[in-house]
Each structure stands twice: as C-alpha cells, then as structure tokens.
Write a protein that binds this DNA or RNA. Structure first.
Length: 881
RNA sequence: AGGCGCGUAGCUCAAUGGGAGAGCGCUACCUUGACACGGUAGAGGCUAGCGGUUCAAUCCCGCUCGCGCCUACCA
C-alpha cells in the first residue's frame, strides 16, 4: 500500500474521530480488575465554545489518559460541562434583548426552559470540539452540573453542611453586582487598579467649633455614614472621641469613635464610617453597634436614604455631592490617588458592597484538613511552588457567600413558612412546616454559586451520594489538570469538599498549566479580538499538529505564547512522520512479515537505532511520569527527525538497494520495528496520524488491535548496544566533514569525488570499511581510501575529526586562498578551545580541587584538540609552500 | 504592602556548577525515486547589570534595573 505523497489531516482526522465516537473502546467496564487511572475534566462552561486554553488542558488530559491506557490501566476520563450560572444567564439575557424581551417578562420557568435549549446546543458543540481534539473520554460517563442526578447530590451536600452548621444564612456585607443584580463571592470580584481621587471633606463639629477632616474616595456614600473613626492613640483626636459631628449634606449627627483599624498615618487620620457600603466599615460598625444604612437601590442608584440625591446613579451622585460640598466650603481639597476597586468577574461592572441576607459556607473548619492534605502529601501540587499560595489563601480564608440572585442554577433547598416564618432545609420539598405544620411554604428564590457544585464534581460524577461501584473504583481520582488561575476557585474547594464528604482527597496530584497568551504575550480576550479558535487551527493545520505544539510549549505551569508558526512547524513534523512511514512501506514487499530480531543479524546501524529507540522510550516514560511534557515532545521530535529520518533511514538505503537479501530483510525488519514503536510512543501526543499509520503498519506485525489499545513499548535491555553510539558518531563525523568541505568549496551536489582518511586509531579502519557503502552514499563519494599518508601527487582539501584526518580530492584545482581562509578559521576556533582547556589544566587550584573525571575530560579534550590542530597547521603549511 | 515568576541568538523558548542549544526567521547551494510541510552547509549570543560563594557561575546566594502575575479590609 502506497501512502499519499503528503499528509492530509482533514479526511484522516474525520475518519478516526467518527471511529472513536461510534466505538466503545474508551468506555470502561462496570467492574474492573487491575490498575486504574481516573481523571475528571475541569468542566468547560456552556457559555461558548472551547478556546485554546481548553485546547491545552484537554490535550494534556488526553495524553495522560491514553498513556495510562497503553500502560495497562483501565483509563477513565470523565467528560462533562458546567452550567455557569451568572455567565450563562448574562448571555441569555443578551440573547433575549435582541428579541426585546426581558427575563422578567418571560418569567422564571419559561426563561429556564430557554436556557436549557441553549445548554443542549452548547453541550453538543463542546462535545464535538473535544472530539475534534482527539479526546478519548468515556462519553457514557458524561455529566452536566444541572442534570437531575448532580442536582440531587448538590442539594444533599447543601443540606448536610447546613445540618452541621457549616452553612448558615446571615445578614452581611457582600459584593453586589448592580448589573447582574446578584451577590458575588470574593473570588468573583476582580480588583483592578483605578486612578481616582482622594477627597478631603470637613465634617463640622456639633459644637460649631471647627471640624474634623476626613479623607475618602467615595463621597457619594456620605448619606450612609454613621460615624467618624479615629485611632484611639492618635493624640490629635483624643479629645474629640465621643463628641459628635454634623454629617455634611444631610445634617445628621454622628459620633466620633475610636477604633484600632483606623490608620493615623493615612489621609487626615480620620475616616468616615459607612457600614452599609464598605466591608471594613461594616466590621467597625459591628464592633461599635453602629447603624448600617443602605443608601442605594439594587442597581446602585441612590435611594430614599440619600435625601436630595435619591434616584441618581452613584457616580452622578458623586459629582453632585462634591459640587454641593464645595459650595458649602466643606471640600478641603482633592488629590490624585490610585487604588484598586472591585469589578464583576463577568460583566466588569464596578461592584457595590452592600448589606444583605445571604447564604454562606463556614470555611475555617473545611480549610484546615485541606491544608493538611497538601502538607502531608496526600495531594501533590505540580509544580510545588503553588503550595505556598495555596496555604496562604486557606490560612486567611473568609466565609464563602454561595447564594446568587439569579434563576439559572441549583435553587437553594430552603423553605420558609408563610405562617410562622420557620426555615426548613431539605433535599425534597417538605410537605409542611416542621414548626407549625402549615403547608404554606415558599422555597428560597436564590440559586447556589456554580462553583459550589463544581467543588463536588470529583465525586458527584461517580454517583455520590449513592455508594456506587464507580465511586469505589475511581475515587479518589489520580490526577487533576487545570490552570493555576483556578487554584482557589476550584482546586482548593474540591479538596475541602472531597475531604468533607468522601473523607478522602479528590485527586492525588494536581498538574497546573500556564495560561495561553497570544503571539505577543498578551492575554487573549474577546474584546481584544486576539482569541485563537482551536477549531480553526485544527482545520488548517490538523489536531495532531496543534496538540504537539501545545505539549511542546508547556513547562512548569508557565504562561505560553501561542504561535501559529510553531503549529506550522509541527504540521511539517507530522508530514515528516507520514513520509518516513511512506518510505518504509514503499520498500516493504507484499506479504512481508516482521520476524523477531536476532542480535547476530543486526548491522551496526540497526544496533544503533534500536539502542536509541529504547533510550527514548525510557526517557519519554520518565518525562511523562514527572510531568515534563515539553521535554518528551522535543525528545521525540528530534529523535524521529534528526536521528531516525536523517540518519538511520539514510544509512539503510545502501542496504535496501544492495543484492544482499539477508541484510535487506533485517534492515526492513528494523525499519518496521522502530516505526511501530515510534507510532506507539507518539500516540498519546498525536493520536490521529499514528492511528492511521498503525492501521496500515500493524499488518506487518500480525496485530489487529487499534493503536490506542496496544501496549506501550518498554525498554528492552537486549536491544541496547552501548558501543554502537560511539561508532556511529565516528561515521557521522567523517560524512559531515566531507559534506562541509564540499559545501564550502562549492562542489556540485551530484558530483562524486574521492576521499582519503588517515585514521586516529586502528579500530576505525575496520569500522569505515564496514560502513563504506553508507559513507560513499551519504558523502557522495566515488572512492574512499584508508591511507597511511595522503598521496603526495594530489591536491587535497583537508579537515580533521577526532577519529580521522580527512582529505578530499576535488579533482579540480584548489583555490588556495579560499582553502587557506577556511583552514585558518577552523584553526582559530581550535586554538581558542585549546587555550581555554590548557589554562584549566595548568591551574593548580583546579588540579587540586576538581574531581578526577573532570580533569580527565579536560585532558582528553586538550589532546584531541591538539591533534586536530597539528594536522590543520601542517595542511596550512603545505598550502603556503 | 506582601508573595510568585520571568529577563539566554532577530522572534518564541530550552539547557547545564566544568566545551551555550532547538524551532521559526535569515544566507548559500540542491526539485537526488519518503518528504520542497524537503535536503546539505552556514551566519548569529561578553546568557539584563553589580557584588558574593566556589578551583570553576548562564546555573547557587544577595542587591539593582526592567517586565508579568497573584493575594490584601491602605479609607
């Protein structure tokens, strides 16, 4: 079978994608024996398609899933998606806006129905994208956070935490998005640097004798002030403590209080206290039993508490208040001031801290075991420099606001009695109030933070709270792969919840990936328009090329710049692999079957490539074990291209074209064996092309399994011949030197010349004689002579390698100037090396203190360099005669 | 403010306590029956700066400069 001349990924990827989709080879059985590997997907959300960052993460998932499968594990990758409450609702509202409909007009049920339609389409699209990428998920295990089974589990978890008082409902200051009209957790509030102003405002003393000056960035919250705070040790204000000031604008009396939290060095040392709209002030207010006044509506317009400003947007109000203060002479000064300000993670609106009744998870008791799990190694973070960040966050953790005032999500299973206002928390709707038996119960309107359900993902996908076989077999999972950006959002919370509900960690290792940036290192974002669509890249250059590029670039969770050029380079690599396979198949006769290799049949070249193949197999295994993905990728790239293709295949050609049938057959055997191993080792990285090639090559081995289900090759000691490497190096050196001379002397590539070598050691005589066909072929030589002395009657162009002194007879007059220049250049290089190494060898300190091996290596380098230098100097001398 | 990371060839990035590499780009030659998504040869770097440890530093330590990110209740 002859392959097409170039690798065309489109047809082939389509073929294997359909095969994988329609077969059950990636489905794990109900009850499995032996080693297991399980990994759950960080569920992509249904707001849109996958981006290139997903592409990286899911490629790594697939590499490990396939690798473990080929290493004999029952390998399960659980796919799924999450419902992304706020984000999805945001998008749906925008969709509805196109139809001039609001969600309120539609009503909750109809709205949810619409979102489900959207979700269905989105999930299909994501599944398609995952398939395009080559993902070997078990689709029979697919989950969605809002499906009935997971919903039940989420509610169950909520109820249990509530019963243990780890979930509570309280009035508290939270981050409020005035656009999404919902509470946000601290993590969903993105702090950004903001160039604003610091305003100094005078609050007149009640006595009428002067004023206290406060500094604030938010004058519009003045109507909410219920005190002015100073530090108790601040001499300037000691006498004022307990006194009252008149709140500007509203003319209300508020006390001057003392609190340690006030920094005397900042501003004027006095601060307005607004418990209703500032988290710190809220805490101070609690300590001093101050009133908390909410001065804005839920969409951040000033409310009736703001007197004349009622109805104004908060930023309009700021301007107006400032101008009123100025008119009254109460605005002392303003100065430029940069500070950070919270924004909604989804819609980027500036959040408004606001007091409201919300549901919270008590985090301290959950965080402690999670810290311990990483400390004692039950969970290993890779790379481990994330440990510190993880500990730091958990040690300073605050309670987690989990209620959201939206419709799309898990509705909180809390029911309020309309008659006695008793609260009942229950997975299923209670028939009557537990207190008064009233049947008039209303469920809490709010839904849970999406991340609450995500935190439960590693066990809910296996059927929790039922004690299922899956749960027993696949929990804890082996590995979690995700971006470091959701260490807190997700990883830490999963560990906490896993320990809480399963009494065991959710995964043993966490591999963090970097973020993918554009070619210039900028963050990708839809607004910048620099996002890369993985499907477009796959269509143009192939999924394997994309995968291999992503793998080769990822190291130590460092951010990577995505480069189309690199994908192009790897597409060329795929083509190279295709063509070397084509070469092997073209040379193999019909009916040929690979026979077991016998050491005595192997040529030097065979022994060498088998040695290298085994070394690579061992190294790649090591790299994957230690999450050195880019090393593994680069290793394979260079082995396949620069060793197998550039050298072994070329060495093999003279044998394939020679009459020695036995030699030819062994060579074909080795070509097939090495190619087969390459396809297997490469398969987790580039599944499509390797499956396709294997589907043809496998006949040679009388195998019929699909490549994904074959066993990963292992290091075979009997196929390792250490001495072959040095011998091959000598042969390569001779060939390279001749090629160099030819190139520098502008000898036409097709012109065959003669070559004379004076070998450095006897053993090379035998070696070069053995490799004569290869040397003649690859150096494009007519004749190759082993000589004690170079023939005196020839004008040779000479060079020197460690194994031999080489003279090439160009059969034309040598340009003496050119040759002189060439030799002088090389001499100067060698002289530098010689000087460096000689200096080391006469340095007493080094001689006395450096290890013996190092000294020996210096000595060897010196001898070798000296030898080559002598030869070239002699040659130069001859030239100048 | 604290923490983390980065600074190596034109670009994107590797590497190692003892001779600095790759991919792309660039130059020259070559359409040679696996491959022009190719081949052969080549140019290009006082490894950000300063100091320290060491016989030896691109690598280990400290400082400086530059860049990026994360955390934080600096009004």
């Amino acid at each position: 079978m002859i392959l097409e001349k170039a690798y065309e990924h489109k047809e082939i990827e389509k073929k294997w994608m359909e095969f994988w989709l329609n077969s059950t080879i990636f489905q794990v059985g109900q009850v499995v024996q032996g080693k297991r590997f399980s990994i759950v997907i960080p569920p992509p959300n249904i707001t849109g398609g996958l981006h290139i960052g997903h592409g990286l993460q899911y490629t790594l998932h697939d590499v490990y899933t396939r690798w473990k499968r080929m290493k004999g594990c029952t390998s399960l990758w659980v796919p799924g998606m999450d419902h992304a409450g706020i984000a999805t609702q945001y998008i749906m509202e925008k969709e509805l806006a196109k139809e001039n409909v609001t969600r309120e007009q539609l009503g909750r049920d109809k709205f949810i129905e619409r979102v489900w339609q959207w979700a269905g389409a989105a999930m299909d699209r994501i599944k398609f994208q995952l398939m395009k990428l080559g993902s070997s998920c078990d689709w029979s295990h697919q989950h969605f956070t809002l499906n009935d089974d997971l919903t039940r589990a989420v509610l169950e978890a909520f109820v249990r935490l509530y019963q243990e008082r780890l979930i509570y409902r309280a009035e508290y200051i939270i981050n409020w998005c005035p656009r999404c009209l919902t509470a946000l957790s601290d993590l969903e509030t993105i702090h950004k640097e903001y160039s604003g102003k610091l305003f100094y405002i005078r609050y007149p003393l009640k006595s009428g004798q002067g004023y206290v000056e406060v500094a604030t960035t938010r004058p519009e919250t003045i109507p909410g002030d219920t005190a002015v705070g100073v530090n108790p040790n601040d001499e300037r204000y000691k006498v004022a403590i307990g006194d009252y000031v008149i709140l500007p604008v509203l003319k209300r009396e508020i006390p001057i209080i003392a609190d340690e939290a006030v920094d005397p060095a900042f501003g004027t040392g006095a601060v307005k206290i607004t418990p209703g709209h500032d988290p710190d002030d809220f805490e101070i207010g609690k300590r001093h039993k101050l009133a908390s006044i909410t001065i804005m509506t839920d969409s951040a317009k000033m409310n009736e508490q703001s007197g004349p400003y009622e109805g104004q947007d908060r930023f309009v109000c700021r301007k107006n208040i400032l101008s009123d203060l100025a008119n009254e002479g109460l605005l002392a000064k303003e100065e430029d001031y940069a500070y950070s300000i919270g924004h909604c993670f989804r819609c980027d609106t500036i959040v408004e801290p606001r007091v409201s009744k919300q549901w919270f998870v008590r985090m301290k008791p959950l965080a402690e075991p999670a810290i311990k799990a990483v400390e004692d190694g039950r969970v290993e973070l890779v790379p481990s420099n994330w440990n510190k960040v993880y500990y730091d966050w958990l040690n300073n953790i605050r309670d987690w606001c989990i209620s959201r005032q939206i419709w799309w999500g898990h509705q909180i299973p809390a029911y309020y009695c309309q008659d006695c206002s008793e609260l009942t928390v229950s997975v299923t709707r209670p028939l009557k109030c537990q207190q008064c038996n009233s049947t008039s119960l209303i469920q809490d309107e709010d839904v849970l933070d999406t991340w609450f359900s995500s935190a439960l993902w590693p066990f809910t996908v296996f059927g929790w709270p039922e004690k299922t076989v899956d749960l027993k077999q696949y929990y804890p999972t082996n590995l979690l792969i995700t971006g470091y950006d959701i260490l807190f959002f997700w990883v830490a919370r999963m560990i906490m919840m896993g320990l809480k509900f399963m009494n065991d960690v959710p995964f043993k290792q966490v591999l963090f990936t970097g973020l993918i940036r554009d070619e210039k290192g900028n963050k990708m974002s839809r607004t910048k328009g620099n996002v890369v669509d993985p499907l477009e890249v796959i269509d143009n250059m192939g999924a394997d090329a994309l995968r291999f590029t992503l793998i080769s670039q990822t190291a130590d969770a460092m951010d990577v710049s995505f480069s189309r050029n690199k994908v192009q380079g790897n597409r060329a690599f795929m083509n190279k692999l295709w063509n070397v396979s084509r070469f092997v198949l073209m040379n193999i006769p019909d009916e040929f079957m690979v026979k077991p290799l016998r050491a005595e049949d192997l040529s030097l070249f065979d022994r060498w490539i088998l040695t290298r193949t085994n070394e690579i197999i061992q190294e790649v295994d090591h790299n994957l074990t230690y999450y050195e993905l880019s090393k593994a990728g680069n290793l394979l790239y260079h082995f396949i291209w620069n060793e197998f293709c550039d050298w072994y295949v070329e060495f093999s050609k003279p044998y394939l074209n020679a009459p020695d049938e036995k030699r030819k057959e062994t060579t074909l055997n080795v070509l097939a064996v090495v190619l087969g191993k390459i396809l297997k080792v490469l398969h987790p990285f580039t599944p499509f092309i390797t499956e396709e090639l294997w589907s043809i090559v496998k006949k040679l081995f009388k195998e019929d399994k699909t490549l994904a289900l074959t066993a990963m090759p292992e290091y075979v000691e009997t196929e390792v011949f250490a001495e072959s490497k040095e011998e091959i190096t000598a042969i390569q050196d001779v060939i390279s030197r001749v090629r160099q001379i030819r190139a520098e002397m502008n000898i036409a590539p097709q012109k065959e010349v003669s070559c004379y070598v004076k070998i450095a050691e006897d053993k090379y005589g035998e070696l070069f004689t053995y490799a004569l066909p290869q040397i003649l072929f690859l150096a494009k030589l007519k004749e190759f002579f082993l000589a004690a002395e170079f023939p005196a009657d020839k004008m040779l162009v000479k060079d020197s390698a460690p194994c031999a002194h080489i003279g090439v007879d160009l059969l034309e007059s040598v340009d003496r100037d050119k040759e002189t220049a060439r030799i002088e250049k090389e001499i100067s290089k060698l002289e530098k090396t010689l000087n460096d190494v000689t200096a080391k060898l006469i340095d007493k300190n080094i001689i006395e203190k450096a290890p013996r091996e190092v000294i020996e290596s210096f000595q060897n380098r010196k001898d070798e360099t000296q030898l080559r230098l002598n030869r070239l100097r002699a040659h130069l001398h001859d030239l100048q005669k």
